[in-house]
Design a protein around this nucleic acid. Structure first.
Lengths: 126, 126
DNA sequence: GTCAGTCGGTTAGCATCGCTAAGCAACTGA
DNA sequence: TCAGTTGCTTAGCGATGCTAACCGACTGAC
């Protein structure tokens, strides 16, 4: 996994958004506004790490932080329109190399990878 | 993959050897003495990064660097006895959590993960 | 034989990303 | 009302990745 991750990273080196930031944008897109701690738990990262990631996205204008009206401690992070567009652009850019590699595989091999991804996701939640 | 990696890392946080260092020890054990550049290529890492990893292992006495008698530029990295022992210890320590999680899966699911690992290894080599 | 170019490895220095410790403000319950 | 908890952030460290630049050893053309 580590070797594959490093190999993949090489293909994305020219992008202006990091891996962790992209993951957060994707989660916000799929799940809607989320609190920093919910994002941290989902990504299996400590709250301070998520604070930093969110701060970076916010300073780029891709997300906004809003206070929860019911609980002054709580914050809610949400995508901006710029964030949504950026997510779409990044998705397009990232699909290139990996999609080409996946296309070279047998359908059953792609299925194996998909199943393994689900297993790893479940494993990460233990 | 990123989430699973971070989850796994939590289980190893108390160890005295890092992930990359462990990987290098394992490669040396399996393949025998190797040059830094061969190690770097295998791990999909830049030569300077591997230099640092090897230097750290060497200063811990787990590997030794020897010059190639035929080519003065070349270096060969090899395990010391301490390195071999350390590798065995670390292997034992690391197997705990993951082995327990894997034991909870169906045999077919473990097979899926094994196949996926092979596919990812091949993918990393492209 | 020599000297320019290449090659393997390293050093220097930077960015990112993970963490823990500690702080602050908001909430909660005895 | 006030002590404890909770959610988030700030501060600061360590590990890991990179590129640029350097050095000594080799190689090949002359």
């Amino acid at each position: 996994m580590a070797r594959a991750s490093r190999r993949l990273r090489r293909e994305r080196s020219s992008e202006d958004i990091t891996d962790g930031q992209y993951a957060v944008l994707a989660v916000l897109d799929r799940r809607g506004p989320s609190s920093p701690s919910a994002l941290a738990e989902h990504e299996r990262v400590s709250p301070p790490s998520m604070t930093r990631t969110v701060a970076c996205l916010a300073s780029s204008g891709l997300v906004v932080r809003a206070g929860d009206p019911d609980d002054g401690r709580r914050a809610l992070v949400d995508l901006t329109d710029a964030g949504r567009h950026h997510l779409a652009d990044t998705r397009r850019a990232r699909s290139g190399w990996l999609a080409a590699r996946l296309a070279e595989l047998e359908p059953s091999q792609r299925a194996t990878l998909a199943e393994a991804a689900a297993l790893l996701t479940a494993l990460a939640e233990r």
